[in-house]
Design a protein around this nucleic acid. Sequence first.
DNA 1: CAGCTGACAGATATTGAAATCTGTCAGCTG
DNA 2: CAGCTGACAGATTTCAATATCTGTCAGCTG
Lengths: 204, 204
Amino acid sequence: MAPEPLTSERILEATEEVLRRHGPAKATVVDVARALGVSHGSVYRHFRTKAELREAVTKRWLDRTTETLQRIARTEGEPTPEVLRKWLAELFAAKRHKAGDDPELFATYEVLLDENSTVVEQHIADLVGQLTDIVEDGVQRGEFTAAAGSDAAATARAVFDATGRFHDPAYAPEWSRPGIEDAFASVLGLVLRGLGAEAHGSAG
Amino acid sequence: MAPEPLTSERILEATEEVLRRHGPAKATVVDVARALGVSHGSVYRHFRTKAELREAVTKRWLDRTTETLQRIARTEGEPTPEVLRKWLAELFAAKRHKAGDDPELFATYEVLLDENSTVVEQHIADLVGQLTDIVEDGVQRGEFTAAAGSDAAATARAVFDATGRFHDPAYAPEWSRPGIEDAFASVLGLVLRGLGAEAHGSAG
DNA sequence: CAGCTGACAGATATTGAAATCTGTCAGCTG
DNA sequence: CAGCTGACAGATTTCAATATCTGTCAGCTG
């Protein structure tokens, strides 16, 4: 046997697996250690606390979405309003997908919310940062009003806040209700007009 | 002694008092009966279940806000964008006031949210109804774009959704953070521009 | 001797028995 | 006899004993 060396990465993979199977309420550090065939003391050699481990797993999980969105934010050769539309739609789709298809890791994410973890704060800062880039792009290209650009970060934050119903985990239970797509289209239209973009949006 | 007749109204007053003192988790129907000097069986003569009683108290409490807002919505002789601004600011202020100064009744309100009570649904419908009136007014007076009026109810709902961070109880913990006023002003500006109103808003 | 183990103390979660509460209703009372 | 009472059954909550978990660390092992 070649017992792979015990790395942080292997621990994270095992932890994700254990969380998916047991959920945040039942998953223990001993479970993770058992899955790896080591003692739980070894896990504590790589992560100082259970909370730290939970955060690292969630960060990895959130970062996968952030990367997908980054690719959209960087899109060139398309009108900025269209980029923003796609970006927000993808954010909504990604969160909804996570909540629906990965409920245990989503529940783990919600635990971090209660803990006021910096991981969540950083995740939001990343998203608002991407939005800020999009807003600046749009203003520069004359596709958004100058008003939006006078403080692009604040505008981006306003866009993020205004669309909260479609990405904030607190609203997850509503994401499977009928009519949610129409509600999203309405808010999106309002926001785009608020940025000074022509209304596009053949909405559903 | 003139033992006042036991009316629903008196029960509601006593219940509100008991809820304020003990909070929704500890307040019992027996407590309410004791406060009134009757047996708890008598209370059940007026309200079929504890949930019904809780809902009636909360409805009364919510309706006080709805009435204040109705007065603003009916304001004449002011630009509609200004009316909308005041209305949303008052909604935010009222919710924040309730959360801060009346925490036990606010907690009771949150219980209803978990119960999917129709009282909350109706409260939201009332608020969106008032917003719909404001939107229709603004469109009619040429102060909002026709786009906003093509489906005033949907637009009103979008305005309600977009400002959720400043009235949805789920966000109550954030309402005392610094910067929240600026965030409100930003979203409000975005929404007003989205409705086609000139940007006013000397914010903060 | 770097990395791992496993026994341990204190913190947290689980469990089941006892206490309390909700909702009903037969009968009391003014 | 309309309105209230209080005993009651079943549901829910509380509480304390027990079990499990987290995080540490002295010492084992390759």
